[in-house]
Structures are given as structure tokens and as C-alpha cells.
Design a protein around this nucleic acid. Structure first.
Lengths: 202, 202
DNA sequence: GCACCGCGATGACATTTGTCATGCCCGATA
DNA sequence: TATCGGGCATGACAAATGTCATCGCGGTGC
């Protein structure tokens, strides 16, 4: 019997996945949570064998939650599930100790198999996403560039970004410019979008 | 027996919801599709009583699909499901003939009840979202303002927006400026975000 | 008919943004 | 140690963006 923990912020999806996997004879759903910062406690208390974690969650994102689980409950393996197949997500999830990574538009019947593979210690990675990750490479953005771009992602002015990052306005413009160069964007908004699509802002 | 059609672009979610509702004794899932432009044909062919439609789908968005279904298969009632509780979505969904509207973070067990209510011709609307919709009001944006803002939502320059909308650059700047005024935004990107959050760009 | 309103357009203007040359600091390397 | 390179920071300058006043056109409604 595989003891499974499910973490997803959308209650409907969480419950539906629980119902789907609950139909499997060898899987038992022992915990369901809707926030990243509740994952670890639930994993410990329920003694789950496998944790199915969504990347986008309030409180703590799924990748950080995966790292927590791997550190404090090494017996519990992690399978990440996400809506967005972003190269950077896959890379960081695996670095955080996740055993697998699937996107939400994979066929439903494959999910149970993925859980079983993870439980046996095997790796499960979407092949297309893996290829994309390998070709896209790691983030070319430097630390401050990432900070500034993340601050810019809400759409504010340079002045507000400068305040948020404790930098001079000129410096902010500089980092934005350099980030735009590296992403091939002609606009700040394009750069933000490109970086988000690659998962470089986490 | 309620004959149910499920439309959602994420195969995993679609399958999981099918599994969840398939457990109900009085519900039978008779069709599953992953694109908006496949909804109508599937509804007709499967003679579904209720269509469960996600808003975000490729091909044709769920609201347009709902209008199609109501026009060509009036016997099939529509329940919209969405990730984002945007005021404008609810308004337009109901105008398109949907009988109900639920967000994906409602508890899973309520979904079956919602389907039954819809089947009986009742209305199902998330109360919090309804309140937000009523207070936020209809879109204050004029047609062209919406067009320009939508074209701007990808982050391009004024020149590219002008090309895409067949307008002069000055005119584009004017519409952007006026949209920014109406949304209370200080930046084009902020205006885009505000309009998206309200569902005004659909 | 006439006022009104949304749409499309223009040009001038002040601000904001993006680009560039430059300098500092620190760690790596010859 | 001397030098090099990369990340970090700044200010000046050019280009783009946002703002404003104004105009003509075509419907709508009184």
C-alpha cells in the first residue's frame, strides 16, 4: 500500500486527484493540504511514502516544500505536479530533491504509474520538458537582475522598483536593460514574461 | 442519471474530475474534451444534460463555448468552472447562458451538488464572487481601449501594438493613456494587469 | 436640426525608459 | 603581486512613452 500525500491549493483539483488515485487498489490517500507550509507537518504526521506537490501554492511554494520534506522526512519521496511546464521549475525541483516532475496536461491514467515509479525510487520526468530544460540552460540572469525583474513583474514604475530593491533608479534601469539584452526582449514587460516563462523568477 | 460532459484543457484535472464525479451514483460522464472548439460537437453527439466547462481552453474560450452550446443544444445546461475568480468572467458567463459558475478552490464535494442543481435548472454562483462582481461593475473600457490593451498585454512596443491594431501610434498612446486613467494605473503594464484581473480583456 | 458621445487621428510637450561609458570592489589566475 | 574578469553601481544622454489640447467623422437620441 502506497501512503500518499496530496498538496494543491485548488480544493477542487486536490479532491479530484484524491478521488482518481483513491480508485487504485495499491494507493491510499492519507493526507490532503492546500498550503505549502502545511506540507511538512502533514507528511510527518501521516507517515506518507510519496508526496504529490503542486508548484503554485500559498505560504510556501512547492519546490521549497519539497526541499523541506527531503530534509526532514527523507523516507517520503516527492513528485512535483504543475500547470506550467517551465524549464527552470524542473531544474529547481530536481535540485530540491524531487524524484519526478509531471505537468497537468499529461493523461490522467499515467499519474498512478508515476506515483508507483516514484515510490520505487525511480525517476519520472516529462521527456519534452526535460529536452526543453536541457536546451534552455540555467538562468543567465545575475542575482540583482533577477531581483529587479521580479520587482518589475508587478508592473510598477522604475521609482517603485528602486524603492523596493534599495537601489538607485539608474541602477534599476541598468539591470532591466541588461536583463532585456539577455532575454532578447525589447521591452521590460517582454523581459518579465520571458523570465517567468522560463521559471527564472521562481 | 445525469449525462455529464467535462471540458478542461489540463488532461490530469479533466480525468481527475471525471473520476470524482464518476463516483456519484446519479452521474455518468459521457464525454471529455480538452479544447473549446470541440465542446459543441461532443455535447450534441453525447446528448449531455450538463456541460462542465473550464474558462481557459485553447481553440475557443469556455464562455464562447457556453454560448455555442446554449444556442445549438438548449437542452444541455452549462456549469462554468475556473481557476481565476475574475468578476468579468462571472458576468459574461451568465450573459452567455451559463447556469452556474464555481471557482476551482471550492471544496470538491460541493461540485456534485452543483451539477445536480444545474441539472434541475437552478443557478449556482459562488457568493463571494457574486458580491465582488456586483461591486466591481461592468468594464469601464471602451471597445478600442480594450483592443489596444489586449494587444499590449504581450508586452510589445507602441509601434507593434499600432501595427497589430491598424491604428496610428499616437492613437495607441491615447487609448493606453485613457485606459490607464480608468484603471488607476501608473503604467501600461499595471493597466494590463488590472484589466486582466477584472476579466475585462477576456 | 442639433447636441452628444465614441472613434480615429495629429502634434507638441514633459516624463519616463533604455543605452552607454565609466568606476569600484572582490575573487580568480598567471 | 599584478592583472583580469564579472557583478554591482552611477550619471549622462537619446529614444520611447504618457499627457494634453484639438480636430473631423459618424451614429444616437432628444
Amino acid at each position: 500500500m502506497i501512503r500518499l500525500l496530496i498538496a494543491d491549493d485548488q480544493a477542487l483539483v486536490r479532491g479530484a486527484i484524491a478521488a482518481l488515485l483513491g480508485l487504485e487498489p495499491d494507493i491510499e490517500v492519507v493526507a490532503e493540504v492546500g498550503r505549502g507550509d502545511e506540507v511538512l507537518a502533514a507528511a510527518l504526521e501521516s507517515r506518507a511514502d510519496v508526496a504529490l506537490l503542486d508548484v503554485d501554492m500559498p505560504g510556501l511554494d512547492g519546490i521549497a516544500a519539497a526541499a523541506e520534506v527531503r530534509a526532514a522526512a527523507p523516507a517520503c519521496r516527492v513528485l512535483m505536479v504543475t500547470t506550467f511546464g517551465r524549464p527552470g521549475y524542473l531544474r529547481r525541483a530536481l535540485q530540491a530533491g524531487a524524484g519526478g516532475f509531471v505537468v497537468k496536461d499529461t493523461p490522467a491514467r499515467q499519474l498512478a504509474d508515476a506515483v508507483r515509479r516514484i515510490h520505487r525510487g525511480l525517476r519520472v520526468v516529462d521527456p519534452a520538458l526535460a529536452a526543453e530544460t536541457l536546451t534552455s540552460g540555467e538562468s543567465p540572469l545575475t542575482g540583482r537582475e533577477t531581483d529587479v525583474l521580479r520587482a518589475a513583474s508587478h508592473g510598477g514604475t522604475v521609482a517603485s522598483i528602486a524603492q523596493a530593491t534599495f537601489l538607485s533608479e539608474g541602477t534599476v534601469r541598468n539591470y532591466l536593460s541588461s536583463a532585456m539584452g539577455k532575454t532578447g526582449a525589447r521591452t521590460r514587460a517582454e523581459a518579465v514574461r520571458a523570465a517567468e516563462d522560463n521559471g527564472w523568477l521562481l
